[in-house]
Simulated scan of single mutants.
Amino acid sequence: MARTKIHVGLEIGTSKICMVVGEVKSDGSVKILGVGQSKSVGVRKGEIYDFPQVRACVKDALVKAEDASDVEIGSVFLSVTGAHIQGVNHLGSYRLPDNEDTIEPEHVKEAKEIARAVAIPQDHVYIHHIIRRFGVDGFHHAASPIGLTGRTVDANFHIVHGIRSRIENQIKCVREMPLDVDDLVFAPIATAQVALDREARERGALVIDIGGGTTDYALYSDGMIEATGCIPVGGDHITNDIHLVTGLPFSKAETLKVREGDASGDSARSVGVVKLSDEKGFAEAEVKRQLLNDIIRQRLEETLGLLRRRLPDGAIERIGTGVFLSGGTSLMRGFGELAHEVFQRDIYRPEPPELSGVQASFKDPQFTTALGLIRYAQIVESDRAPKRGLLSKLWPFSR
């Protein structure tokens, strides 16, 4: 009988550091054993800029996760993000020798090797090689074509890569806990494990995870990943805009944004003023709702516009299911209405899967990526095959 397996996901975000401990049971169900969360200090736009502070925050999250789960944590699945990370599709084609017409495992392997060997900048390293589909003589196949008759076999991969030093700094931070890194996962790919089911991927879906410092996205169509990326803009940029325009301290601007802001553009929600009081309850400032909401909407509209322009040509038309919003900033009032205006597609919030354990907190979309890491680990564990280890990921593909 298969035994249970414990996996741990770690997200080092701009606003928070979250570590979640999950137990995958023999029947495939998942039980969340514990969560450790710490306010993030030393991270900007998803990347580490103050190593000692981030290390202390990760240590705090680790202690909390171990206390909550009663598990001694030794390794984690680590999500990574940042504008330096890029996703690209690459096709590899291999022509069979003239005296052969049946596709063998070695032919598929050759096509894979060609597809994986995409040129990347010298200072970049690979994070993911995700098979999208195969092809035989130009005809697409979802599964391996071994045993079929043909002259040319294709392998189409989605390849994610990023700057070596920035990724290594995150790994170093984790290893100084000390913890091992089971695998690296680009954040929107982790988020998609929770946000999308098979039907959504088949019909086409866009996942947008907007946090404090970044907006990550993953596009799926025909059941395959089509595009991924990261825009270095998030909720903190909205707060800073409010701070600059109104002159309020950053902390007050953040409170104003969360409690009173609205991105819908509905004039009925922009009437009157918002009065702020100081710690003693005395009046401190007044801000017109119209001004506040215009600041919020303009920044979010710009961000979603940038994301839309990054999508492949015709991608919007292939989104049959809709757009899934996650991340803390997606909780902004009216954000769903704004996203619908930009993409002209149905808007959804990821529904948490059926879990046991301390699952109530995971109804908050800011935890979607952390939970997605557990789902990703579950998939890797059930579908494990011989592959290059983590250390080899940190070196460009040389063949």
Rank of each mutant, 00 (worst) to 15 (best):
N99D: 15
Q290E: 14
L276N: 04
E302K: 11
G92M: 01
A339L: 07
G34H: 04
V258A: 10
F157T: 00
A119N: 09
S79P: 03
P121C: 05
D67I: 03
I189M: 12
C57H: 07
S69T: 02
G272Y: 11
A187P: 01
E106Y: 12
A2V: 09
T246D: 02
R309I: 00
G135P: 03
I6R: 09
R203S: 08
L196D: 03
R44V: 14
I189F: 11
D266R: 14
E11T: 12
E354N: 09
L291H: 10
S251H: 08
D294T: 14
P52Q: 11
L373G: 03
G305W: 04
P232W: 03
V118D: 02
F51P: 06
E302G: 10
S326F: 12
D364H: 07
A115D: 09
Q378T: 13
D137T: 05
I295A: 04
I85P: 09
E168S: 14
D50A: 09
E66V: 06
A117P: 00
V181G: 07
F77T: 04
D123Y: 04
G204W: 05
E100D: 10
R95Q: 13
G42F: 03
P145L: 05
L325C: 06
T368S: 13
I210V: 14
N169W: 00
L219R: 02
L256A: 08
I242R: 08
T303I: 13
P52G: 10
I296R: 03
A339M: 07
H107Q: 09
C57T: 10
V273S: 10
L248F: 02
V88H: 13
V21P: 00
G320A: 06
S93L: 04
D241L: 12
P353R: 07
G261F: 08
L331E: 12
S165L: 14
F77V: 11
R55S: 14
E351T: 11
D262F: 04
L355Y: 06
L331T: 07
T191V: 15
L390W: 07
